[in-house]
Structures are given as structure tokens and as C-alpha cells.
Design a protein around this nucleic acid. Structure first.
Lengths: 144, 144
DNA sequence: CCCTATGATAGGTGACCACCAATGATGGGT
DNA sequence: ACCCATCATTGGTGGTCACCTATCATAGGG
């Protein structure tokens, strides 16, 4: 009794997308969990590294995460000295968030791990195929 | 303040896969939820339609779902007369599960909806590109 | 005929996630 | 000065999900 997936499903690109995506997500989350982190932590550090310091509110907006959740997230990251939180002197309601050197170091480590997960997931594909896939996904992601 | 995703993330195929997959999953789940169904219900019906009747245990194996969850799932589907559950006369511990005509009808309706969701998600791509994407995903899914 | 293994089922648990409401501080207009 | 909007933070809620355990019936070997 082979545990084959029904063709009705595998013929749906949507289904494959969802399944493969979930697998990728799961593997990466697993790696992160081993260090007590979740995907949002990675995304947050990446945003700060790529775009520089943010007002906390803007950071939540960029990542499309609820303000209250962002507060908790930053609490955890700040507790590990991966980022700093400082009141905006110009508007003391706002909090300015910036990544620390330790944060950058961890981020680079995490992206390495993400790349390794990627190698696992994309193993069946050649380099050119991977490029094609990436391009297509980028269009799908952007065309929202 | 544009809510652009950090390039550190969009350069990861894994990340895009996870995001786009989650979106596809979400849209489809939303449609199903409108009819009081979840993705597993669709998968279960599809498996029965594609491969014929199953022993309940084998069905759970095929879909890689926990036996106890399968029992609940089947309870819901049987309650809508979408499938039948009968004791295997040859081994009265086992339960034989088969899809009903009503189940097939619903399944065909659901796959139509899935196709429509797919059109939404894959909108930015041409027909050829969709084929390419499907092929690549199929390889990724199979190469597990 | 017992003993153990298998299958289905019921109930419960813990993780995760996205969301919401209340509170307190601050800003800025009138 | 006052009032209202904004921001961060806290604590809590509801839903989904995958899993685990205990229970009961049945099979099948010794």
C-alpha cells in the first residue's frame, strides 16, 4: 500500500505550493527553534539589517505583524542584545529599533542555515532550475 | 515608509516558497471554511476518489495523518453522507471507507474552486510559466 | 483458551498564531 | 489648559494543529 498522494491534488499547483512551502517553512522553523527562535525573529533582524533602524510602529507595518506581537518579539530579541530599543528624542512616544553587531552576527549565521535548508529542499533541481523557480516565485510574491 | 520585504528574505527561495505557499493555502482554506470544511476533508475525498475504498488505517497512512485525527475527520464527512464507513467482514477491527456519489459531486465542486484560487495566485504567470512551475514543484514534492 | 498485537475511537494537551481590549505615556492642535 | 490621537505594552482569547493516552473490540498465535 503505497502512500502516494492523490493525483487530484498533485495536479493542483496550489496544493504543491502549499505542501512544499510548508515543508520549507517547517525545516527552517526547526533550525530556528533549536536556538529558541521563530521565523519572525529572523524576519525582524533581516528588516533591520536591510533597511536600517526603524520606528517600532513602522517595523510592524513592514512585516505586517500586529503591534502587540511586535512588542513581545522585540522584548525577546532585546533580551539577547540582538537589537536596541531607544525612545525617539523627537517624539517620546515612539521607540527606535536598531540591530546590534551581535544581531548582525546571528543574522548572518541564520541566513547560512537558511541556505543550507534551501539546499535540502531544492536538492532535486539544477542550478538553472533553481534560478527559474526563484524568478517565478518572486513574480508571484510581488504580484499580490 | 514602504512595506517592502527585506531582500535578505526575498533572496531566499525557501522564504518565497513558504510565503507564496501560505497564501495559496490560506485562500483555499478560506473557500473550504465557507462550507465548513478544511483542507484535510478535501484531501481525504480526493484520496478515496483517486484510489478507491481504503481501510481507514491505510487512508491515514497515505495522507500521513494521525489515526485519531482521521477518525474525527471521517466522522464529520460521514455525517454529511460524503462517504461510508463499514466494518471489514474479513477483519472486524478494520473499517472500510468509500466515497459516495454525493462525495464525488462535492469533490468536483471543490476542485473547481481550487482551480479558481489557483488562477488568482498564478495570475502574474503565463500558461507556459505555470507549466514550468508545476513541473518544478512536482519534482520538489516527489524528491522528498 | 489465554496473551499479545492491532485497529478505531474519545478525550485531552501543548504549541503556535493572529487578533483584541485596556492602560499609560506622550504629542499636538485649538 | 484641554481634548483627542498616537504609540507601546500587557494580558487575554479563540482557533488550528499535531500529537498522546486510555479504552474497547477484535484477531491470531502459542
Amino acid at each position: 500500500m503505497p502512500d502516494t498522494t492523490p493525483p487530484s491534488l498533485t495536479s493542483l499547483t496550489t496544493y504543491l505550493l502549499s505542501k512544499v512551502g510548508k515543508r520549507a517553512r517547517g525545516l527552517l522553523a526547526e533550525r530556528l527553534a533549536a536556538q529558541g527562535l521563530r521565523l519572525w525573529h529572523l524576519a525582524t533582524l533581516a528588516a533591520l539589517a536591510d533597511f536600517g533602524p526603524h520606528a517600532q510602529r513602522d517595523l510592524a507595518g513592514r512585516l505586517a505583524i500586529h503591534a502587540s506581537d511586535m512588542a513581545k518579539l522585540l522584548d525577546e530579541l532585546a533580551g539577547r542584545d540582538l537589537l536596541t530599543r531607544d525612545r525617539d528624542p523627537g517624539d517620546r512616544r515612539r521607540v527606535l529599533v536598531a540591530i546590534t553587531p551581535a544581531g548582525r552576527a546571528l543574522l548572518s549565521d541564520l541566513t547560512d542555515q537558511a541556505a543550507s535548508v534551501q539546499d535540502t529542499v531544492l536538492d532535486p533541481l539544477t542550478a538553472e532550475e533553481r534560478t527559474v523557480l526563484h524568478g517565478l516565485l518572486l513574480r508571484l510574491y510581488g504580484g499580490r
